[in-house]
Design a protein around this nucleic acid. Structure first.
Lengths: 227, 227
DNA sequence: ACTTAGATTTCGCCG
DNA sequence: CGGCGAAGTCTAAGT
């Protein structure tokens, strides 16, 4: 990885066009071909960047110009960095990163609810996860006590969008004679008041869940009475 | 901005939990409070990060541990970096960045279509761009041959979301007696099949456009017969 | 402070 | 490889 701190002008041309006037910035050239142009602000996002695969040309000695080209499927992306002055130039060898384990929220909620759909507050039997419709899969498809169909949409945060999504699924499911009688449940860790407002007149039930408690109920806390 | 290259272990706890085992990485501490942990691969995305506002504590001399805390609205986010060995430690002063001029695709499409709404495939007259409704502006409002209202939503990529957005606009427009008879057109460079599936039964017409060709038709290629 | 819409979104899964 | 949904989405703008 090469780290450059330099006064530079940057021109990007690709899906859009952008020009950064000359200023002192941090340039990162990763081993995989990534190029990042960072300022001291703007948070997590670079001002400009190129994702692999790229071809990077460092021109001039001392460094005068850097050209990054991408042979993307469609049009050619192009990043040009004109160096005015180099304040810092370091090349370092970083370690290889093995995969990092993350703990996705929505996926876990879906796993837990698939295992125990009755956690939704009524006697439900799971028919299948990712029930296919022609506009996308329903997270959980269940049957209730009287064999009525129940489509469950799971989110970390239940927004208006989630209600709209579930509504679309119900629209499609009801158009199918096999699942014509189908109601909907929106399950999430947190549900925004406006989502409830929208869901209620559509007869969509909203259920707030606590993933930790959900897990706890299935695997009771063993530390309560340690040996 | 402080740049650290160090062997370190990173623990994130917040919306999810993640642990990065000890390895040599690049740590960036921006002036705005952002913290980025980058590896030599993985492209534009940091392995871990914190977005502003944060409180950063550098502990120990020599540096032993860095704690980044975020007082977000809801739960507390927490990033802990345990330093094993520092390979590089630089603090640099970068320039302030004035706004960067970007040349968005959607805006250009809107400009072109505003100039020639008939490019949508029927005789349309533009009434106004950014037609206001109480839930946001409609990109283009037009009249067709028989003076019927036509609301046009413009996107680079036409997704289900775009259909939903246009549907909401139409809902509002039809609730207004002045525009009660209003139909919708979704215009985009690319329109996803599922978006068409959703749009069709709602009588929303989908039009795919090529910005380059659109421009070419208005400004014929001058290089054809150079002087 | 909260909500909404856009993004060169990026990323990953599944067909 | 394309399509689609999720993301610790992030970020900027409007209310």
């Amino acid at each position: 990885m090469r780290l450059l701190v330099a006064r530079c002008e940057v021109r990007y041309s690709g899906r859009l066009s952008a020009v950064l006037p000359e200023a002192k910035r941090l340039l990162i050239f990763k081993g995989d071909g990534s190029v990042l142009v960072h300022a001291d602000s703007g948070g997590y996002k670079p001002l400009n960047w190129m994702t692999p695969p790229t071809a990077v040309d460092f021109e001039g000695d001392p460094l005068e110009r850097i050209v990054v080209r991408k042979r993307a499927g469609t049009g050619e992306d192009h990043l040009e960095i004109v160096i005015a002055e180099v304040a810092n130039d370091v090349t370092v060898e970083l370690d290889y990163e093995s995969g990092l384990e993350k703990d996705g929220m929505e996926r876990h909620l879906q796993e837990e609810l698939a295992a125990r759909p009755e956690a939704l507050g009524e006697r439900l039997r799971l028919v299948r996860r990712e029930w296919p419709t022609d506009i996308g899969p329903v997270d959980l498809m269940c049957r209730d006590e009287v064999d009525g169909w129940v489509a469950v949409e799971i989110k970390r945060v239940g927004t208006i969008e989630a209600v709209e999504q579930l509504t679309r699924y119900l629209e499609r499911l009801r158009a199918d004679s096999a699942t014509a009688e189908c109601r909907g449940i929106l399950a999430a860790e947190r549900i925004r008041p406006q989502a409830v407002t929208l869901a209620t007149p559509r007869s969509i039930r909203c259920v707030e869940l606590d993933l930790a408690r959900l897990r706890g109920e299935r695997e009771p806390d063993l530390t309560l009475f340690p040996a």
